[in-house]
């Protein structure tokens, strides 16, 4: 029982990332009908927003501190980050400490802009081209984005730390009456899960309860009719593309402390997220979220030792195996809508 709970919890953080990326992919697919292979790159750019934020806050100037001397007797050079000198040492230190959550604010406009520019600059011209062309051009774009990041940030993973308050783990089991030290769970992963739940909830609420969301949903169902009603649906879909990019970017920002960002993390997640979208059903938003969490948790169950003893290597292939099984038995995916991508 405790093992089941622990693996479920372990699967949640990866599942949250899959769910958020897959949600964005499905949004783009459902609204614009475009298969976006550059979505993983957006996730990566989000993660690098966190890195940039941490670096920006840590920019320091050097001063000579006469009270401290090195072993030769010269005054020691002391680095003081600008934020500390502006806001006072305590406030400044905590700003640096909290740079990852603060990067959320910084990343939303950036990701909205990147998404908007991508749609207007490139993807707009590909609506009427075959899906293969869309896949190819976004694939090329993903390579370019990835190489740009590699050029400026290097090829090595960049450790990005979570705020001190969320470092370490807590004993989840004792709260539920298990023995201590059985279910230990890092704080940040819990934060990540809560964050993703909020983001996903916000997207759904936005689509459900606002007029804008209503129009977008109507456009997803029947684009032509909405257009005939005199609504500029293209503009709204462009904004939805920006939102989808922002969701992927947010997933990336908060993922940075869990896994040090490197330039190919987007591609690694993209492949899995596509599998998630297909399992959930092309064009189904709840399906994407459900499949994301499901596959994340399944992956963590498959990496338990006694399961690996029975079927060696299962942890490496479980997601693909499930995808193949589902595609062959339920071609539309778990919650796929009828008539989407069935040509």
């Amino acid at each position: 029982m405790d093992a089941i709970l622990l693996q479920t919890l372990n699967g949640l953080d990866k599942g949250s990332a899959y769910a958020m990326i897959a949600l964005g992919l499905t949004l783009i697919f459902g609204t614009l009908g475009v298969v976006n292979f550059a979505h993983g790159a957006l996730f990566m750019i989000g993660a690098f927003c966190a890195v940039t934020m941490q670096r920006l806050f840590s920019i320091s100037f050097e001063t000579l501190d006469p009270t401290q001397t090195d072993f030769l007797g010269n005054p020691l050079k002391v680095k003081t980050p600008y934020v500390e000198s502006w806001f006072g040492p305590e406030m400044g230190a905590s700003i640096i400490d909290w740079s990852v959550p603060l990067a959320i604010l910084f990343s939303i406009p950036i990701m909205l802009f990147v998404g908007y520019a991508m749609e207007r600059g490139l993807i707009k011209h590909f609506y009427k081209r075959p899906h293969a062309d869309q896949i190819l051009v976004t694939f090329g774009l993903a390579i370019v984005m990835q190489e740009l990041i590699k050029h400026y940030y290097g090829a090595n993973p960049i450790p990005t730390s979570a705020p001190d308050a969320f470092k370490g783990s807590f004993d989840f089991g004792t709260m539920l009456g298990f023995d201590p030290n059985v279910i230990i769970y890092p704080y940040w992963r819990l934060v990540y899960f809560a964050f993703s739940a909020i983001v996903i909830g916000a997207v759904f609420a936005f689509l459900r309860f606002t007029t804008f969301g209503m129009v977008v949903r109507a456009g997803m169902a029947d684009r032509e009719t909405v257009g005939l009603l005199g609504i500029n649906i293209d503009k709204r879909f462009t904004i939805m593309f920006g939102i989808a990019a922002a969701v992927a970017g947010l997933a990336g920002v908060m993922y940075a402390p869990i896994n040090s960002p490197n330039y190919h993390m987007g591609m690694d997640f993209l492949v899995l997220s596509f599998v998630v979208v297909v399992v959930g059903g092309m064009g189904s938003l709840p399906g994407a979220v459900l499949a994301g969490f499901m596959l994340g948790i399944l992956e963590s169950f498959a990496s338990m030792n006694w399961i690996k003893d029975i079927i060696p290597g299962i942890d490496q292939i479980i997601i693909y195996l499930v995808a193949i099984l589902i595609l062959l038995t339920r071609p539309r995916g778990l919650m796929g809508r009828k008539g989407v991508m069935e040509d």
Binding site: V35, I135, V275, M282, A323, I324, L327, D343
Partner: peptide, 11 residues
């Protein structure tokens, strides 16, 4: 279509 691409990718 794209399902074929994903299946081959998965394999």
């Amino acid at each position: 279509g794209i399902y074929f691409s994903i299946l081959t990718l998965a394999f």
